[in-house]
Computed example of a mutant assay.
Amino acid sequence: MKGSHCLICNEEIEAILSWNTLFGKEEKEPKICGECNENFERITGEVCEICGRPFAFLKAEYRVENLCFDCKRWEEDVHWSGSLDQNRALYRYTDFAKDVMAKFKFRGDYVLAEVFAEGLCQALQSFQYDYIVPIPLSEERLHERGFNQAEALITTAGFKPTNMLSRVHTEKQSKKSRSERIDLQQVFKFDTDQNLNSKTILLIDDIYTTGSTLRHAAKILKENGAAKVYSFTLAR
């Protein structure tokens, strides 16, 4: 039996004979090979209560009870305290994950959304929400990339995105220092007539770095009535 090809490394995926295939039941074909799958480091164990950072890779001095030091600083800032209720992520942002994300985001490889669809689908079942909202790109970024990677992740995983925010064009986040990201003026506009009173929103983005982007989005959603704002990212 011949398998399909891995969407990441393009190596042939060996077809595995199972009881389901013997009895003629269809099984989903894997999108990536076993080696690439193992190269993703899933986040497990104890994590920061807010941002989902794994404590196993954090020095003790950067942890304060159930929070990492970064989240403690965000929560001590009156402007940002309570803006984002919780973030969770699938994978650690390792070199391998970084390379795959770069292909997905910057080289326009839309099909890579399929790599994450099953993991995203399973993970989102543990969230309760009214709307699932992709972090938007500015028109310039959308033109550069050809698609919004957050929206691609949502639709490929079988969910329906609700666009509520638009983005003011700014310099790329990746070019900014941590303090510049934190001190940014609001980068989003609330772009819908929907009533968010007492609603719970789940934001989707590809990577959690400083948490600035997600907190900007969460803050404006709460200013427009949202009761809770959670977020989910592929990598942390």
Score class of each variant (00 low, 15 high):
40 F>Y: 13
174 S>R: 08
104 F>K: 00
32 I>V: 15
38 E>K: 01
58 L>M: 09
49 E>V: 03
135 I>E: 01
190 F>L: 01
5 H>N: 05
164 M>N: 00
66 N>F: 11
18 S>D: 10
83 S>L: 02
124 L>R: 09
109 D>H: 06
140 E>H: 11
67 L>V: 14
27 E>S: 01
53 R>Y: 03
178 R>V: 11
177 S>L: 03
51 C>W: 06
214 L>V: 14
191 D>A: 15
34 G>I: 04
126 S>D: 11
202 L>I: 08
71 C>S: 12
178 R>E: 13
46 E>S: 02
3 G>M: 15
118 E>I: 13
125 Q>C: 09
37 N>A: 14
152 A>Q: 01
81 S>D: 02
147 F>K: 00
85 D>R: 05
7 L>N: 11
155 T>K: 09
195 N>R: 05
192 T>F: 03
43 I>N: 07
71 C>V: 09
208 Y>L: 13
102 A>Q: 15
160 K>Y: 09
123 A>C: 06
4 S>T: 07
49 E>H: 08
129 Y>N: 03
206 D>N: 04
149 Q>D: 01
215 R>A: 00
74 W>L: 14
180 E>F: 08
224 N>G: 05
38 E>L: 02
41 E>R: 09
56 A>G: 07
130 D>C: 12
101 M>H: 09
112 L>V: 09
147 F>Y: 15
160 K>M: 01
24 G>W: 10
9 C>K: 04
186 Q>S: 06
101 M>V: 15
180 E>A: 02
144 E>Y: 07
209 T>E: 12
83 S>W: 04
3 G>H: 10
191 D>F: 01
198 S>E: 04
158 G>W: 04
154 I>Q: 04
235 A>E: 02
79 H>S: 07
111 V>C: 09
3 G>P: 15
121 C>T: 00
64 V>P: 04
192 T>M: 11
12 E>P: 03
15 A>R: 04
185 Q>G: 01
176 K>C: 01
4 S>Y: 04
99 D>T: 10
37 N>E: 14
107 R>E: 10
35 E>I: 12
33 C>M: 10
82 G>N: 05
170 T>W: 08
185 Q>A: 09
84 L>R: 03
30 P>F: 10
219 K>D: 03
179 S>D: 11
222 K>C: 00
85 D>V: 12
56 A>Q: 02
71 C>I: 02
146 G>T: 15
90 L>S: 05
223 E>T: 09
65 E>K: 12
218 A>D: 14
94 T>E: 15
97 A>P: 12
25 K>H: 10
59 K>I: 14
164 M>V: 02
55 F>R: 05
94 T>P: 11
204 I>Q: 07
86 Q>V: 13
201 I>H: 13
181 R>Y: 07
18 S>K: 10
167 R>N: 00
36 C>M: 05
149 Q>Y: 03
88 R>E: 08
204 I>T: 02
204 I>V: 09
200 T>Q: 02
146 G>R: 06
71 C>E: 11
225 G>V: 06
176 K>P: 08
186 Q>A: 00
34 G>S: 14
97 A>E: 15
203 L>S: 08
60 A>Q: 12
73 R>I: 05
111 V>A: 11
124 L>H: 12
136 P>M: 05
100 V>K: 04
188 F>D: 06
141 R>L: 00
74 W>V: 11
144 E>Q: 12
29 E>K: 06
